Amino acid sequence: MTTLGHLCIELAFVLLVTNCANCDEQYYVDCSTLRMGQYKCPHPDIINDYIDPQTQQPRGCTKENKAKVLCLASVGINCTETNNRTFKRDIPCKWTNGYSFETAMLLSIFLGMFGADRFYLGYPAIGLFKFCTLGFMFLGQLVDIILIATQVVGPADGSHYVIPHYGAGIEVIKSDNWTYKLPQDDW
């Protein structure tokens, strides 16, 4: 989300708090049903301890690419599950297993002809084949540089690369049986 988007959410949250500062009524709701603007994630008290410096992802990110984070409901809203304004919510994240994007790129550029990039990412058969053929006569090395740079080839365990928090990240959009095009009327 952009900085402008964060600023708009912060402003909406402040307006909700100031509009209800004089409210004495307390509403108890299931906080999993709250909509954007009715809560703030992560909780402002844990914002400095929110990102894991080793993985550059929210702490507690699981293989399902979700992390539970402590959130704060707006003033006047109490959660039925905790009887106060705090609750835990799943947020999206990218599970990493320690494979560095920079390391994979450097190995691919400088030692890709020997298959070092593929060995590092957990593909020993392709790494051995690249080693025996000098990176498919350097053509396979060039292809792997492009595939790793565009993040098409990732670690073999299905995890994501560790990328600096403000570094470039690519989101791959795939189509399967659950996604389809809706028919459109021709004009």
Rank of each mutant, 00 (worst) to 15 (best):
residue 20 C to T: 14
residue 11 L to V: 03
residue 184 Q to K: 08
residue 110 F to Y: 10
residue 125 A to D: 06
residue 151 Q to L: 03
residue 12 A to S: 13
residue 120 Y to R: 01
residue 97 N to L: 05
residue 95 W to K: 06
residue 10 E to P: 00
residue 67 A to K: 10
residue 183 P to T: 11
residue 88 K to G: 10
residue 44 P to E: 07
residue 182 L to K: 15
residue 23 C to S: 14
residue 170 I to G: 00
residue 147 L to A: 09
residue 71 C to L: 08
residue 35 R to Y: 11
residue 26 Q to F: 05
residue 58 P to C: 14
residue 125 A to E: 04
residue 117 D to M: 01
residue 31 C to P: 05
residue 152 V to Y: 13
residue 45 D to L: 14
residue 43 H to V: 09
residue 100 S to R: 13
residue 52 D to A: 13
residue 123 Y to L: 11
residue 27 Y to M: 10
residue 149 A to G: 07
residue 178 W to I: 09
residue 70 L to H: 08
residue 43 H to N: 15
residue 51 I to C: 10
residue 29 V to F: 10
residue 24 D to L: 14
residue 91 I to R: 05
residue 26 Q to L: 13
residue 185 D to H: 09
residue 69 V to A: 04
residue 30 D to Q: 11
residue 84 N to R: 03
residue 56 Q to A: 10
residue 147 L to Q: 02
residue 121 L to H: 01
residue 74 S to R: 13
residue 160 H to W: 11
residue 54 Q to H: 07
residue 76 G to W: 03
residue 104 A to P: 02
residue 114 F to H: 02
residue 92 P to H: 14
residue 1 M to R: 11
residue 137 M to N: 11
residue 151 Q to E: 15
residue 38 Q to M: 09
residue 127 G to T: 07
residue 108 S to H: 01
residue 42 P to K: 08
residue 159 S to K: 08
residue 140 G to D: 03
residue 106 L to P: 00
